[in-house]
Design a protein around this nucleic acid. Structure first.
Lengths: 222, 222
DNA sequence: TAGATTGTTAATCGATTAACAATC
DNA sequence: TAGATTGTTAATCGATTAACAATC
């Protein structure tokens, strides 16, 4: 009975909104940890700074199984550690990026992903001018070598920054070679088998939200 | 009484998930409209293709106030038009982009935004090598000219693709000059007045969702 | 001690999903 | 006509928010 309850707890799905807020807390915690020398921080303080109500903060942090102290709040160092543990940022996962254009180069050059548990080990492109060179410190290989290298290195995550027209083909190649999750930066909705994860960075969707909010704001002021 | 009800309907907030799905429907509708010559499409067909349950599709499309025909579905041309109207994609809004690095260049070079009602009219940077040149067909101005040009052209949307260290400063400049909405591609949470809209393209948050889903998938298969 | 804050249970809110009569 | 599909109302589900005893 007791064991069963524990099992259910572990299986309990993590709310996606909570998941998305955790890195926001994390960034803030790192900042105050560096800037001021505070040992403890309350959900109220975090909430004030990030404009999230304190109850929400407490509920979100609960998922890391941290225990705070009434009146004091949470130990900053411990909280940072807990979030890292919960999100698995200790053991970094390797990824390949395909499409070393402007967007791809931007991602290759961003060194912050390692902090979030992702290591882009190499880039791929079909442009012979790029193959063999380094972009953002990462070697660029010809896209023909993609399947072989995915297999050999056991890569599970692929980052897709190719032109829209090639997106589905490259995704197919990735999946056939063993990629299990695709971070899709193209404007195409990918067609993939049910057991493949696609995280679509859909700028059109974001833009729609931005525009509507602006429209409402401007109308309210007329 | 009747009028009051109508007012309330207009004020009725639009669910953000619906808003984000509309461009997905739109892209698909455009595709089938070009490819095959079908006049009508049902929520069932749309749902099958996009892996969204039909009721969800119907509920989402309801917001555009389209009326479908039982047995037949929706008129494709009309539906496309309705979504365009609802999202205000007919009258394009101008925007400035600040930070013409790799990411900024990728956005400047993407011509698809116009289709979604956004026109990036110019870029800004502090790199003298870039100032005066064109990137992706858009002229790059020195960032010193940003306030003056925002005022003169009455620009309301700013796209932020500068290095994290400059993000808050540039945002402040934008807001002071009259920008009302910021599309934030930096890794920094911006501090802005309550009446300014920030749409934060938070890659860390997306990455966290991707990683957790992959973790769960891989664990389930062990 | 008094008061702020946690942890936890309950209430509310909004989005998703179901049900079903109307209809082409 | 029969059956698929819409439009609409109701039920369910999950996330947010509230309430409050425990506590440092």
């Amino acid at each position: 009975m007791v064991d069963e309850r524990k099992d259910l707890q572990n299986i309990k799905p993590i709310p996606e909104p909570t998941l998305r807020r955790l890195p926001v807390y994390y960034q803030y915690l790192k900042k105050i940890h560096n800037e001021r020398k505070v040992d403890f921080i309350s959900a109220t303080q975090i909430g004030n700074e990030l404009k999230i109500i304190p109850i929400q903060v407490r509920k979100d942090l609960e998922i890391t199984e941290i225990t705070g102290r009434p009146k004091l709040g949470y130990n900053v160092t411990e909280l940072i550690k807990r979030i890292e543990d919960f999100l698995g940022w200790n053991n970094v996962t390797d990824a390949f990026l395909v499409g070393a254009g402007n967007l791809g180069s931007a991602l290759l050059g961003y060194n912050g992903f390692k902090e979030y548990g992702l290591n882009i080990v190499a880039g791929f492109d079909d442009d012979e001018n790029k193959v063999g060179r380094e972009i953002g410190g990462k070697m660029i290989f010809h896209v023909d070598r993609l399947p072989e290298m995915i297999r050999r290195m056991g890569i599970k995550i692929g980052i897709l920054t190719v032109p829209a027209a090639y997106a589905q083909d490259v995704a197919n190649t990735m999946i056939k070679a063993g990629i299990r999750a695709i971070w899709n930066f193209t404007h195409i909705k990918l067609n993939v088998p049910a057991n493949i994860i696609v995280q679509h960075e859909n700028l059109a969707a974001s833009l729609v939200v931005l525009s509507k909010r602006l429209e409402i704001l401007l109308q309210a002021q007329k």
